[in-house]
Structure formats: structure tokens, C-alpha cells
Amino acid sequence: MYHTGNLVKELAEKHGRKRESLMPILQDIVKKYNYLTDESMVEVATELDISAAEVYGTASFYTFLDTQERGKNVIRVCKTITCSMKGKNDIISTIEDILKIRVGETTPDKMFTLLETNCIGWCHKAPAMLINDMPYTDLTPETVIDVIKGYMRK
């Protein structure tokens, strides 16, 4: 959990308080904190004078605007057909083994969240995954261990 402090107010100043400012404000919060707390959504609703249910409705439509608590590093393994055929399941079980969590879960130290995602456009270099904004491609169980270990050291 985090507290947004003045962030929502600052973002409303930056992006404006019209209905169309909702998306950029939510994106900027997620950029900073990885996910949206209920508190932050209520703050956004108050700033824009819309209802909190509307903010939640918008956020819940977009996979990348998480409304559940997420770790510092969000791993999204592509689950779409090409990556599936090229060994996505092995990648996932390798990550599950190394982080001791299942898909959808976050490590107790809040460092990693493991998720699946729909196609991220790297079919030609499948299997692929994202960690935060960074794509990793042509994955094998060996290379994925190195990638994760790299983030563990950060």
C-alpha cells in the first residue's frame, strides 16, 4: 500500500480536470506505483468530480491499470497462441519455482508479481514476456532464470 500525498492533485493540475484527463492521470499513478489503490481512485474521482465507480470502471477495463496490489516488478508472460506453442508453460513454471509464487500472486517481499498477458506483439521472437515496460524474448527456462536473477540483484 502507498499514500499518494499530493500526487493526484499535481496530476490533475498537469492534465486538467475534464473527463478525458482520467486516463493520463491513472496512467501516471500506475507509472509511479504500479497499481491503483482504492484511496487513489477516490482521490481522482474527487478531483475530476466524477464518481469513484466510474474511475474503477475505467481502470478495470484496462489490463495495465491494475486495481490489485502489485509488486515492484510486474512480470507479464504472454499467453497467446504463438508463445503458448513455443513453450510459455515451461517459462511460467520456471518463474513460479524461482519466485515461489503462482500466476496472479505477489512475493511476500512485494518485489515481484507474476501475471499472464494477451499478445504483446513479439510472436516472431516467442516465447516473450514483459517485466514492467521491458520486453524479454526468445526465452528459455535458462535465460528466464538469468533475467529474474538480474532483477533480484537490483
Binding site: 482504492d38 481512485m41 466524477i50 464518481s51 469513484a52 465507480a53 466510474e54 478495470s60 477495463f61
Partner: peptide
């Protein structure tokens, strides 16, 4: 002008939801 409920999620999961699916007795 209340919008206690809005459309949430998408596709097959789309539903009419209160704020973060709270009970209707605990929202606006």
C-alpha cells in the same frame, strides 16, 4: 448524478459494478 454503479471489466467479465465491487450498502 450519483453513478453508484458503472460498467467494469471487459469482454466476458464485463459487469455492472459499484466502486471496486463493494456491497451496495457501502457505497454512494
Amino acid at each position: 448524478h450519483v453513478s453508484a454503479i458503472a460498467v467494469a471489466n471487459k469482454g466476458a467479465h464485463m459487469k455492472i459494478s459499484s466502486f471496486h465491487d463493494r456491497p451496495m450498502s457501502h457505497v454512494v
